[in-house]
Simulated scan of single mutants.
Amino acid sequence: MSWQPTMDWHHAKQRSQVLSLIRLFFSERDVIEVDTPLLSSSSVTDPHLDAFVTHFNYSVESHCSESTVLYAQTSPEFAMKRLLASGYGCCYQICKAFRHEQQGRYHNPEFTMLEWYRLGFNHFDLMDEVEELMQLILKCDKIERISYQALFINKVNLDPLNTNINELIGVITQFDKLSDWLLEEESVDTLLQFIMAELIEPDIGKDTPCFVYDFPASQASLAKISSKDIRVAERFECYYKGVELANGFNELTNVEQQKLRFMQDNDLRKQLGKPTLEIDENFIAALEQGLPACAGVALGIDRLVMIALSVNKIDDVITFPLSNA
C-alpha cells in the first residue's frame, strides 16, 4: 500500500475548477451555500442504506462512562430540510457523506456529495436545473428524458407498474441472469431493481445523459406520490456513461405520510435481518412545523468529476480512498 495520493496534481486542479464552477452556478441563481453536521443522533431508516456508527462519551445527558450513539450522515437531507422548515431559502451544500457499502470503481465509503433544494420547484423544474449544471460542467448534449414505465417497456417489454413475480422472473430468465436467490425473492421491488441495475442501466445514458422519472410509488423514498397517477412517485434519477449520477425528488411534506414510510422501512429492515432504527425526531418536528413546497436533488461530486475528467475509477479523483486513508 502506497502512502501517496491516488489523484495526481493535474486532476486535483481540474477537480478544483469543477467545484468553482458549481459554486458560481449557484451564486448566479442566488442559491446559498450552507453547512450542516456530519454526525447526528439518528440516521435514515432506508433498508438499503447503512450508516457508519460511532460513540460519544461526553453527552450532557449521560455520564462519561456511558456512550451515546452517533451516525455519520449518509446525506445532509434531513438537516437541510430542517433549515428550510426554519425559514431558510433555496440552498445547497457540498459535503462529505458516508455509506457502509463495498468500495468499488464508482464508490468510496467516504465520498463528496452536492445536494440542493429549490423552493417552489417540482421534480421537472429541478431536472431542468440539473441539466443546466451538467451542460456547464460536462459540455454534454441535451439530456434525454423517459419515464420509468416507458423505459421498462422499451428495454425489456415489461410494464413495471402492472407486473408480478412470475413475469419478472420470466424477463430475468430471458436475459440469462437468473440465480437461486432470485427464485426465492418475494418482493416485486427487489426484482424490478435487479432488472434496472443489471439489464437496463448499462444500456442507457451512454452518449447522452438520461433522466428517468416517475418511479413506482413503492420506491418513493422521500418523494411525493403523483396526483395524476398514484402508482408513481415524483422522483427522478440521472444516468450517464454507466454511472448513476443524481437522485431527485419533489419532496414529501406530509408528516403523517413520512412517519408511515419510516415505519414501513423498519418493517422491511426486520425482514432483511437488519436492525431497526430510531426515527429522526428532529426531522419529524421540522415537518410538523411545516416544510415548504420544494424539490431537492443529491448529486455525486466524485462521479461528476470522473466523467468531466474522462477517468475510469473514483480513486483517480479523490486523494486517499478508504484502502489508502
Rank of each mutant, 00 (worst) to 15 (best):
C294T: 05
Q93S: 03
R15A: 09
I94N: 03
I32G: 03
T208R: 10
F121V: 02
D267N: 13
V317D: 12
L133W: 05
H123D: 06
A217F: 07
N162R: 10
A293Y: 13
I307Q: 02
A12C: 00
F78L: 04
M80H: 09
G104Y: 14
S59T: 08
M1I: 00
S67L: 05
I200W: 12
D229T: 01
I195V: 04
M134L: 14
Q257H: 14
N108L: 05
S147I: 09
I314E: 05
R29C: 04
T173L: 12
S310A: 13
W116E: 05
L277Y: 15
V18D: 09
D315T: 14
S65D: 15
L158E: 00
N250G: 08
S221G: 04
I165A: 05
S75P: 12
K206P: 06
Q102I: 05
Y71Q: 09
A72E: 11
M196S: 10
I169S: 04
D315R: 15
K81V: 00
S20P: 01
A97T: 10
A293H: 13
D280V: 06
C91H: 12
G300D: 08
L245P: 11
E185H: 09
S187V: 09
K259P: 08
N250S: 10
R231L: 06
E110Y: 12
G248V: 10
K96M: 04
A217Q: 05
L84G: 13
K224I: 04
P109S: 02
D229L: 00
L119H: 10
E129R: 00
C90N: 11
F52P: 07
D50W: 12
L38N: 09
S86L: 10
Q174D: 12
D316Y: 15
S179I: 07
K224Y: 03
L114V: 07
S221I: 02
K270W: 08
F52S: 00
T173S: 15
P275G: 11
R145Q: 00
I153M: 11
I32H: 11
N324G: 08
S40H: 14
A233C: 03
D159Q: 05
Q73D: 09
L24F: 13
